[in-house]
Design a protein around this nucleic acid. Structure first.
Length: 386
RNA sequence: GGGUCGGUGCCCGAGUGGUUAAUGGGGGCGGACUGUAAAUCCGCUGGCUCUGCCUACGUUGGUUCAAAUCCAACCCGGCCCA
């Protein structure tokens, strides 16, 4: 249970051990804001921990922050988040549930899913004043993020101060015994404790898990940075991303995302990468899909494009011939624009059926293209189908 | 509300009337090399119906043969004052 836990407060891991002696099922809270459509491996760290509590017989309370998402967590942000529309939030919330179920036990006795609009949307001004009165400006400005922005004369909008209070109020609303969160959530979780005391509840125990470093090896994994592996990424894509995880991150990934004992890992870095990629792909997509992904990734690297199983397909039915290669690349979504496609061709990043293609050309009909695999760089590829 | 400074491409940041999608850095992408890692080297880094055309320096309008650069109004932000 203590694997991959950075800090338990107050009281450290001893407090957690003590709480776990309780005979009643504990209510373990984890909140996620549906600010983007996809969950990724970074979320999986806390979800895994939540799953462990479930397996011990406790009740996971997964909070979809549909209301807090309208503000956006200022944690770690150097500027206010763009405000989302309720439609975007609702859509994202649904995809989150689907994705979280890949990790969590969805037995209703073990999983309670709540949206915080249930209680936050109806707070009236007098209750909000009550919440705001529990904290001082100085306390808020002590929070990392706010402090830096204040010192650097970056704007801090007043509504952002509401965020920690709203997240804390979630703990009150669901009567959390324990709240999980990344290390950057320390302030917000602590606010939850304070508010529970304010509302005459026993305060929750706070359990911090590490932030997963993204594929770039530097920044926290996040979709906006692009250094992420989505829980719904296709098996091949997932495998490809994970097999190139930087060496110095491998042990961390194994520790936080899998149950593999790192002392049993092969010494060879390349073999470790492959094992990580296979293990996680199998975890999220099943072993068979993982095997295929592994084989496809290998064939793709070797240029054996005829032997690929599960790479994405692009139908030529919607294409109007004649068509230039640049336009085809764009329509197949291999390149974001024809200009980018042009650059890729000049840079030698385009392969047709395994052969480098370094000049623009025009295709007059579909027949010659069917079955061909088009590749951009080492990771992006599609097979053309009728 | 008053004073003042500022808003440039993914980010930071030059540029103050005139060849130019706009110096430089970061990041990103591609190539070579490797282990699809790291390090190193090279190239690219607005869009398109692409031998040319279009859109860009907060917004709108104006001055001018010509503006990111001058003027006006407006929007947004920092600091100081109230």
């Amino acid at each position: 249970m203590n694997r991959g836990v950075v800090e338990v407060f107050p009281g450290g891991t001893a407090a957690l051990d003590e709480l776990l002696q309780t005979t009643r099922p504990l209510r373990v809270k984890l909140g996620v804001d549906p600010t983007r459509p996809d969950l990724h491996l970074g979320h999986m760290v806390a979800l895994n921990k939540l799953r462990q509590f479930q397996d011990l017989g406790h009740r996971a309370v997964l909070i979809i922050g549909d209301f807090t998402a309208l503000i956006g967590d200022p944690t770690g942000r150097s500027e206010a988040r763009p405000r989302l529309t309720p439609q975007e939030v609702a859509h994202n919330a649904q995809t989150y549930l689907d994705q979280a179920s890949k990790v969590l036990d969805s037995d209703p006795a073990r999983l309670e899913i709540r949206r915080n609009s249930e209680w936050l949307a109806s707070l009236d001004l007098s209750k909000i004043i009550d919440l705001l009165a529990t904290m001082t400006t100085q306390q808020m400005l002590a929070k990392e993020g706010f402090r830096e922005r204040y010192n650097q004369q970056q704007p801090i909008h007043l509504h952002e101060f509401l965020y920690p209070l709203m997240q804390g109020y979630d703990s009150v609303a669901i009567q959390a015994d324990i709240e999980l969160g990344g290390t950057d959530q320390k302030f917000n979780l602590a606010v939850g404790r304070d508010l529970q005391v304010h509302y005459q509840q026993p305060p929750q125990l706070c359990l911090l898990v590490p932030l997963l470093v993204g594929l770039d090896g530097v920044k926290k994994m996040s979709k906006s940075v692009g250094n992420y592996v989505g829980l719904t990424d296709s098996p091949l894509l997932m495998y490809q991303k994970l097999q190139s995880v930087p060496d110095n991150l491998l042990e961390t990934y194994f520790n936080l995302l899998t149950t593999v004992d790192v002392t049993t890992l092969p010494p060879d870095g390349r073999a470790r990468q492959k094992q990580l990629a296979f293990t996680l792909t199998a975890l999220l997509h099943g072993e068979e899909a993982a095997h295929q992904a592994q084989q496809d990734a290998l064939n793709l690297a070797l240029g054996k494009t005829t032997q690929l199983e599960q790479i994405p397909e692009f139908s030529l039915a919607a294409v109007n011939f004649p068509i230039r290669l640049t336009q085809l690349l764009k329509q197949a979504q291999l390149c974001p624009s024809t200009s980018e496609a042009q650059r890729q061709i000049q840079a030698g990043g385009i392969r047709l059926a395994g052969e480098k293609q370094d000049q623009e050309l025009t295709f007059t009909e579909a027949s010659g293209l069917v079955g061909t695999v088009v590749q951009v760089g080492k990771k992006k590829s599609v097979r053309l189908v009728p």
